[in-house]
Each structure stands twice: as C-alpha cells, then as structure tokens.
Design a binder for these strands. Structure first.
Length: 378
RNA sequence: GGGCGUGUUCCCGAGUGGCCAAAGGGGGCAGACUGUAAAUCUGUUGCGUUUCGCUUCGGUGGUCCGAAUCCACCCGCGCCCA
C-alpha cells in the first residue's frame, strides 16, 4: 500500500508499505543482478549504506543457480541474508540487452543463454513462476523493452503485446500467490509502461494498464539512447496518467541529475547500475560533482573521496590510497568505491526526502541538478 | 686475450635499404558507462607554426638518390673458449 504524504508541484513524498518493511519515497534501489552487488559488497555491507531495496534479476538467477535452487533455499531473502524489500526485474530488459541472442513471439521470448548458448524460453507465466520462486517483495511484469529509435508501427504492436503479456502476468501471479507452497503469497506486481519515444502511444498504454489494478507502475524503455530531454518530456506527458495512489518507478535511471529531474516530474522509485558500475570503473559521485579517482591530481591527496561524505570509504581512506588501489588493480578499490557511490545515491534520496518535507525541493533541484553532473573542481 | 651474439621510442619487444616517428604488449595519461553478457570498452602516448616540417633506433665516421636496417672503428651488455 502506498500513502502519499505531501507534494511539491508534481514531486511526491510518500510512504510505501511492503511485507518486508516500509520505505520512504522517493527512493533508490541498489542493483544486485545475480543476488550480489558487483564489486564485493554484501547484504551485510548494505545495512550501513542506507540501502532500502535490493534489485535482482529473474533471467540471471533462472540461469544460475536456477530459481528452483533459490526456492529450495527458502527464497532470495534467506538466500542472500537480506530482510528488507527485494525487487526482481522480470527479464524484460534482457529482451532488449541480449537482442542478438533472442527471438520474440506472442507466447514469449526464446533466448540463447549468454553463459553457454543453451536454448531457453521465458514468457509471462515463466517470468512470474521464477519470480514467485525467488519470492521477492515486488515482481515486475514481463515486458518488451523496445530499442531506440524504433519504427512507430513496431512500437505500437510491441506495446499491445506487452499489454497482453501483462494480463497473463496478473492471472499467473494471482494463481501462484494462492498456492500453499508459495514462499511469499503477498508478492506484489508492477506493470511497465512502454512506447518508445512516442508519447501518444505511451499515454494510451499508461491509461490502459492504469485501469488494471497493479501494485505500482513503472516506466521502462527510457535512458536507452534517446536524448535526456526526450526522456523528461515523456515523463511530463505520461506521469499525469499514472494512478496517483500507486508508486511510480522509472526503470534503470539514472544519473543523480536524472533522478532529481524525474522526482520533480513525479517519480517515486529508481534503480540503476550506474553507481556500482561507475564505481568499479573509478568514477566517483560527490557532492561537489563527478571525479575520476585514478586521475593523477589525486596522487598525493590526503582528503577522502568526498569530504562531505561519511560512508565507510570516506571515513577511513584517502583519495591517494584509493587511487593507488585502482592503479594496482586491487579488488578493494572497487569495493570501497562501490560502497561510496551507493551511499552517495542513498544519501541523495535522504536529502531529496528532507527537501520535500520542508517544501524546498525546487530550490534543491536548482542547486544540485546541475552541480551533481558537473566535474568536481578543486 | 679470442669467438659468437646483442644494444630500437618510459619498459619489454617487432622491424634487416625507401610504404618507419617506427608493429604488438606493458606502463602512463584521459574519457565512456543509465531495469549489469561490463573488475569492461575507447582515445592518446618524440617535438612543432600539424594534409606539412623537424629530431630519434648505443657512439662516431662512411657507402647510397635514400640507413633503425649495409660497412669500419669505438662503447656497453650476454654466453662460450683461454
């Protein structure tokens, strides 16, 4: 259940009740595709990184270790020792990102495993069954994430199919949740809005799925190559048609600035690989802008990555040391940087919440939306 | 002392007469990354007034229209014989 506490323009401040605890919105989810945050950060570490939700992936866990294994191990929460909410992505994004290895049909998608080439099939029912086995807090509907740009006719037909798939997801999820062997019978289901960059298709799709009674509504298929302004425009056009009493989730987004701008337009939930992936590649988000930890200028810098941060990395180590770790290829570099970036994103959401509570989010946006995407100056 | 071999740009290393400022690695420097097939990928790495000019391949001096490449001597290093 979602409770809207207050608004500022279209920006929303709320509380999302889940079977695994309440979450203040807006919030950011930390991506651990294969039931682990890449870079060597465990669910125990996440507790001191202010993580609200961990996101895992249906496709990846189905392939390895197998959702049957996780089911037998009691579900994902128990498996990775994380008692807060988990959101599982449906495999829909892999329809997009593994485009060379798949074939889309009405019944679902035929994949070749990226691990060993084995043929497999995932359709709406399979995705729901896998996610039910994983026993996540929130399951995502199985969709097609359309590439960009794509012909209007293709996008139109794809979206109609995604809607039909949604109906099958709803039916299958209801059936699975009523079975006594189900680990999490209160598993929630979110729908995903698609439509590429055609806002009329997006709006029609949102109106349709908005009437289908889901637990939340996601916007997918953005930040896949289109200009940022196009993404913002679509949010402006589509969000007014998303049910106001349900959380809105912008999938796979994004930069700190993208998040601020999307909250401004009415989004409540985010996830992105950017903080963790960029951290492993030595790109660090700070309250003064973006820095590359390997840059020569930090060779003798005794300051922490971000002097305004109190994450485990910033409390204990210097830029000079972390630069050295990266240069030396030490795994600790990635781990510390990932801890920092996740803490930064989670703290960003704290500050957004505070600004909304105090009715000064507009001011916050004016200052931080440009600052956080600038290069860190010294 | 004699024989054989070897010396290339920051390092290793290819190149044995022109297509060589010189392959390929490494290292350095910089950048990208948005529901993770990503601890990955890209650019750059002699100097300059940059569709061209200059300096460079242990040193010096030659041969040649032309030399990192051929010749002579010298210097350094390696192995073998004394």
């Amino acid at each position: 259940m979602f409770v809207l506490k207050r608004t500022e323009g279209r920006a929303r401040r709320g509380l999302f009740h889940t079977p695994h605890g309440d979450i203040e919105t807006p919030f950011f989810m930390n991506v651990g595709t294969a039931a682990a945050i890449k870079g060597g950060v465990s669910s125990v570490d996440l507790r001191e990184l202010k993580t609200r939700v961990e996101l895992c992936n249906t496709y990846h866990l189905h392939l390895r270790p197998g959702d049957d294994i996780i089911y037998k191990m009691g579900g994902l929460h128990k498996f990775m020792n994380w008692d807060k909410p988990i959101l599982t992505d449906s495999g829909g994004f892999q329809v997009f990102s593994l485009s060379k290895l798949r074939k889309i049909k009405e019944e679902g998608v035929y994949f070749a495993s990226h691990i060993d080439g084995r043929r497999l099939f995932i359709g709406p029912e399979e995705s729901m069954r896998i996610q039910s086995h994983l026993a996540s807090t929130i399951a995502m509907a199985f969709d097609e994430c359309v590439e960009n740009p794509a012909p209007r006719e293709y996008v139109q037909r794809s979206v109609e199919r995604t809607t039909r798939w949604l109906g099958r997801c709803i039916d299958e999820m209801a059936r699975l949740n009523s079975e006594p062997s189900t680990i999490n019978p209160k598993q929630m289901l979110f729908a995903i809005n698609q439509g590429g960059t055609y806002d009329d298709i997006r709006v029609e799709h949102m109106k349709t799925i908005g009437g289908m009674g889901l637990d939340g509504y996601a916007i997918g298929g953005l930040a896949v190559g289109e200009p940022t302004e196009v993404m913002y425009h679509i949010l402006d056009e589509v969000l007014p048609y998303a049910p106001a009493d349900k959380p809105r989730y912008l999938m796979g987004v994004g930069t700190p600035s993208n998040i601020i701008e999307a909250v401004w337009r009415g989004v409540d939930m985010f996830d992105c690989v950017m903080p963790s992936r960029n951290a492993r590649h030595a790109t660090i988000f700070t309250w003064g802008g973006i820095m590359h930890a390997t840059n020569e200028r930090y060779k003798l810098d005794e300051r922490p990555l971000d002097p305004q941060c109190d994450c485990p990395a910033c409390r204990n180590f210097s830029r000079a040391y972390i630069r050295h770790l990266f240069k030396a290829g030490e795994q600790l570099a990635g781990r510390l940087a990932v801890q920092h970036n996740l803490y930064f994103y989670n703290t960003l959401m704290d500050r957004i919440n505070e600004a909304l509570d105090e009715g000064r989010f507009g001011e916050f946006r004016d200052k931080y939306s440009p600052l956080l995407e600038s290069k860190l100056e010294d």
